[in-house]
Design a protein around this nucleic acid. Structure first.
Lengths: 113, 113
DNA sequence: GTGTTATACATAAGAAAATTATGTATATTT
DNA sequence: AAATATACATAATTTTCTTATGTATAACAC
């Protein structure tokens, strides 16, 4: 099963921040592959979604970047700024809380009748 | 805390379907109030989001409607069609599964260093 | 050695789904 | 009588994604 795409909406930024917190330093393509493998292919982040998100995080000052060359190929590493670390904490807590709220709603018992 | 609005995205349809399954028959305004109270004000469904969603569910054939008058004021009740009941089952399962996947990602241990 | 797949970035056009704003109207509370 | 709550609806805008496209290098298979 691959989740229908609308579910990912709203969670992508938080997931990216959390991965950067967990792994300290990652590049874009690596993020897509890690999410794919960690979720057993159920979440596939497209490049069209990821790169604009990373650029947004950068322009918000939440991540810092370093460009490296692997042979002739460019690779752009992202890591959290201190603002980003704070923000990650907040967003992860909010999302975790939200998950519990949704779970509660989904577990409501139908009226017996 | 009120969840930042982007989190609701993608879950609204499923939440509405689930509430209709739980309560059999609801009208729009009632849905907004019930979600608000069940979540202790953390999720506030706006009318601009809800009504188009309900109309979409109707045009997809997942819900059926009955209009009633309370005094002179109109009230439109929604309930699941049999297609809607099936679809609700699927979407609730998908969302529950998705929640677990996200929870797993959010619980990853940071690299020790 | 050449064709395919994988790696790695980026952006633009379009679609989907919400927010915000606005509109209409009745009912209830202060 | 005014303010708030109930109850519907839709339009303009914004946000955020998908899909498509583009560029380029590296690795693998045959």
């Amino acid at each position: 099963m691959i989740y229908s795409s609308e579910l990912i909406k709203g969670t992508l930024k938080t997931i990216v921040l959390k991965l950067l917190k967990t792994n300290k330093r990652m590049y874009g393509y690596e993020i897509t592959q890690m999410v794919k493998s960690l979720t057993m292919d159920k979440i596939q982040i497209t490049e069209g979604a990821l790169y604009p998100t990373l650029h947004a995080l950068e322009s918000e000052g939440l991540v810092i970047t370093e460009t490296e060359y692997i042979g002739k190929r460019v690779r752009k590493y992202y890591s959290l700024s201190s603002d980003g670390a704070k923000r990650t904490e907040e967003k992860v807590n909010e999302l975790a809380d939200f998950m519990n709220t949704i779970k509660f709603l989904l577990d409501l018992e139908p009226k017996t009748n």
